[in-house]
Design a protein around this nucleic acid. Structure first.
Lengths: 194, 194
DNA sequence: GGCTGACCGTTAGCTTCCTAATCATTCCCG
DNA sequence: CGGGAATGATTAGGAAGCTAACGGTCAGCC
């Protein structure tokens, strides 16, 4: 499990009580927020057990997925020139994965040590490397993915199609709000601050 | 931000395409799952920037909250004997926070180094320590919390009361499903496996 | 009264993330 | 064409999580 999170979320009545002391505390917002983090963490934990059983971590899996997606032969228009074939260099991988290049160096290190990727020099720019999936990685992923998909499906099995759509809609709304906050959009501030 | 997560989620059509190759892949489940993890991470990131501005981490904040909650004088029934006054020893804190005792040792180390807590021997059991919040921590929290609550409220500001209730309901449903999966409940398996 | 087992906190060593600094290479501009 | 500026990968060091193993302390049972 990734981060320290209170195991027992404060009950709603406690939030109401605390809001008396802190006018900035919005009880229903806090409740939704805590449940969001908590549930994300729990769901993550389910897949992590499957990861651990195959001796791979979330971070390394993400890199493999990125490379795998890029390695799929493209049927579409821009197939020949390799445009859009996914990230290949450590810097591109770091960008796509949302980690720093230093972190990506470490991930590629262990992936290479375990024989899942190869570093090869870029023939056209000697600053760069090209990261290649090995056959071993391909074989590993083909064995690993079905179980992973079943884990994901098991977690969401409790929701019907309509509920899933509703959930995604609400989550996307929150994502947009977070993006607006990051961009410093003043209209995205809490209404309590207006 | 906590963990490596694909910045660009695969589009739904890509999931549909991939499902042709992997029968275990449930596209709507995968979509909801990815959005859940991604949104939790994004929301977490918003508060984390506020944490970083005050030179504190999520983990240390959690410990302070636990101690603070425990330090509040109880108005209720069981006030006199100290029952229910919250965790005090490192082991209790670790249990409540959902981390190992070893991790809690490290957290208390840095918290003590920074003057937020004190370790004191338990007079009745020499194996144990009692962790005490300092006045500095109390002052810090009183200054920190309002901004934290505003961050949380800002993230959720985009949802109305009804949407928040719906979101919490769906999240709680997922949490229950995860608990059932952890307990090995066979009826909680994916319907695809039945 | 003294073992034995259980529990407490800590230590040691691993992983994966981060930032900051370093070094090689390429690009651009005068 | 020569010299910054920008870009790419790496290294070093730190934080926060984990497991495993340790020594100190208590408690229960012969």
């Amino acid at each position: 499990m990734p981060h320290l999170l209170l195991k027992d979320l404060p009950r709603y009545e406690c939030l109401l009580e605390a809001a008396k002391e802190f006018p900035d505390l919005d009880p229903s917002a806090a409740e939704a927020f805590l449940h969001l983090l908590r549930t994300g963490d729990e769901a993550f934990g389910v897949t992590e057990r499957h990861f651990a059983a195959h001796h791979i971590s979330q971070g390394r899996f993400g890199v493999l997925m990125l490379l795998w997606r890029g390695a799929q032969p493209r049927m579409g228009a821009a197939a020949a020139d390799g445009i859009g074939c996914g990230p290949r260099t450590p810097a591109e991988l770091a960008e796509a994965a949302g980690v720093t290049r230093a972190t990506m160096t470490g991930l590629i290190d262990t992936l290479e040590r375990d024989g899942f990727v190869r570093r090869e020099p870029d023939p056209s720019d000697r600053r760069m490397l090209l990261v290649q999936l090995t056959a071993k990685a391909d074989k590993f992923l083909r064995g690993f993915m079905p179980g992973h998909f079943r884990s994901v499906a098991a977690v969401m099995d409790t929701l019907g199609e309509g509920e899933r759509k509703t959930l995604v809609r609400l989550l996307v709304k929150i994502q947009r709000q977070v993006s607006a906050l990051k961009a410093g959009d003043p209209s995205a501030e809490s209404s309590a601050a207006r």
